[in-house]
Nucleic acid binder design. Structure first.
Length: 212
DNA sequence: CCCCAGGCGTCCA
DNA sequence: TGGACGCATGGG
């Protein structure tokens, strides 16, 4: 099966990625919001600012005023929106009891609730579910779509669920597999599938399609 | 100077 | 429903 074989090639090429980077689950969830359309290096700066101030807790972040929060997360860009999005997410999380992995609710319900928060769309919701809440949800991002469409596996304008289902329907429902696969696709994208790089000879996926 | 990055909401046809 | 646009910083 194609989807499984792509995974094997990526894993053999790059090895395990151990995603998502971050010391705590809360930090991971915050990173998922801050990284929206933003280079990870800039997100790290924002998170480090919060960490230096000892603010990486739900209550402390909710306690500081918005202007302070904006200044701290400024390097991550879109800080006016992201400060609001962060606080709305934290309010929701606090209502859920404040522990990301001890929530007695179905993944489906949690996903709907996350999507109802303004500024949290499918990718951010699924990233939080998978990496911060340990729920087996496959994450689709810009790299995933670009890699697959560039190799004619999906249409360029395939929507989120269509791409997500391609993976879910062709893989065992396994938490760590989902984590590694998404991380590997990002790794591949950053290395061999950049935006204005039409096709790359060195892309390890070419071997998959030569065999077919 | 340019383009881009681990999106999302809004507006408009 | 789907394409264009604004949001913003920092690196290449």
């Amino acid at each position: 099966m194609l989807i499984k074989r792509i995974y094997d090639v990526l894993f053999n090429t790059f090895g395990p990625q151990y995603w998502w980077p971050g010391d705590t689950l809360l930090e991971i969830a915050i990173g998922a919001i801050l990284t929206q359309n933003t280079a990870w290096a800039n997100v790290e700066k924002a998170i480090n600012n919060l960490k230096k101030e000892g603010l990486l807790s739900i209550d402390k972040l909710l306690a500081i005023d918005n202007e302070t929060l904006k200044k701290l997360i400024r390097p991550a860009g879109f800080y006016n929106q992201k400060s609001e999005r962060l606080k709305e997410f934290l309010i929701w999380l606090k209502e859920k009891g404040g522990c990301l992995t001890n929530i007695n609710e179905s993944t489906e319900d949690l996903r709907k609730e996350l999507l109802s928060i303004k500024g949290i769309g499918p990718e951010t919701a699924d990233s939080i579910l998978l990496y911060a809440m340990n729920r087996p949800v496959f994450v689709v991002d810009a790299y995933t779509k670009r890699v697959l469409s560039r190799h004619n596996i999906i249409d360029r304008k395939a929507d989120y669920h269509e791409v997500q289902n391609l993976f879910v329907n062709n893989l065992p429902r396994d938490l760590n597999l989902y984590k590694e696969y998404h991380a590997l696709l990002v790794k591949l994208g950053k290395t061999y599938c950049k935006k204005n790089q039409p096709l790359c000879e060195a892309c390890p996926l070419t071997e998959v399609f030569l065999i077919d």
